[in-house]
Design a binder for these strands. Structure first.
Lengths: 196, 196
DNA sequence: CCTACCGATCGGTAGG
DNA sequence: CCTACCGATCGGTAGG
């Protein structure tokens, strides 16, 4: 590998490592609380060294949202692609998401719950990127709800979205894992309509 | 009124006006984004003049959460106290809450949605105060769900809580008022179980 | 990638 | 309630 390419590859790897840490930091502290100084300290880099990878705080925030969307896709969407469309796929996606929140995924709770509530009243590309990611998640839920034969896929998607977000928020406040059972029971009730 | 009492009353009025503004600012910018300098500028006071009412940022945050809980009670709980317990009361509370989010109430969207997501990963009295307020709201939903004759009041309360929070978050991201119809349809579906 | 800065703003204090 | 500060931290820049 030529030296220039090796340097570029190392730069990309550093950038990826920064974003990995940035997702968790933003999940806990928000996208404003994701400060360049603090992120640099955690990465054991200088502030300006880290800053150079992005050029502005907004670009760092955008790159973090993008990286979080990729992590979400890998944890929740990709693993269920082999499962038949409809009720089974829907069920598997919800389970993957609840596991993602519960066990692995985001150390600081769900990235999307935190950042969507933080940014929803603002204007600009960061807010728009978050909105687009959540719209895509809602649209996928609606598509699968339609394929599952539910009477009102848009309503079902809204309820699934709400229950899963609600479970995340309740769990983080109460630390009571029973909320995941509640969320799964809600999903069962919704999907029962499709199979009866 | 003696001069000392008049002075104290004026101080209390100023404090109440500050907190009224603080709720809206925190709804939009979060409880960390609620900075003393910005709040002082909006109240056309000096920073230290405002600071003196609270003594620390944490006390300001706690007072703001308390004031928001009072506003919530006045908008959502008190107006429905004359309505019979059970399904009717539950329905009226949800409607009051959705109106509260939609029309009046919080200029920056729901205070509780924003601040709960912001603070849920932290430790300390501010987080605990938010958790207590939301626990009380969930408990009231569960109590009324029980009185409405629902089979699983805890599950129903979780679903109502989630759907109402989800409507708030979806509305703020999509600006599509249809989410309120979805929320009301979800509530109808839940309550139908109680009356059939 | 680094050191060494910049002006602005943070929470908070002194003194009145 | 005010002016005038404090040290720390913010996002960002200059220069290497």
């Amino acid at each position: 590998m030529p030296q220039a390419a090796a340097t570029a590859a190392k730069g990309a790897a550093t950038r990826a490592a920064i974003l990995d840490r940035a997702i968790d930091l933003a999940s806990a502290e928000g996208l404003e609380g994701l400060t360049i100084g603090r992120l640099a300290a955690e990465m054991e880099m200088s502030k300006s060294g880290l800053f150079g990878h992005f050029g502005s705080k907004e670009e760092l925030q955008l790159a973090t949202v993008e990286a979080a969307a990729l992590r979400f896709r890998r944890a929740v969407i990709d693993p269920v692609l082999t499962i038949p469309d409809g009720a089974d796929r829907l069920r598997a996606m919800i389970d993957a998401y609840l596991d993602h929140i519960d066990v692995g995924g985001y150390s600081g709770g769900c990235f999307w719950g935190s950042t969507a509530a933080e940014m929803d009243d603002r204007l600009g590309p960061v807010r728009d990127a978050i909105a687009a990611a959540l719209d895509a998640w809602l649209a996928e839920l609606e598509r699968q709800a339609g394929l599952a034969g539910l009477a009102h896929p848009d309503l079902a998607a809204f309820e699934l979205y709400s229950v899963v977000m609600g479970a995340n928020l309740r769990y983080r406040l109460s630390k009571d894992r029973q909320v995941f059972d509640h969320a799964r029971a809600s999903v069962d009730r919704l999907l029962a309509e499709a199979t009866k």
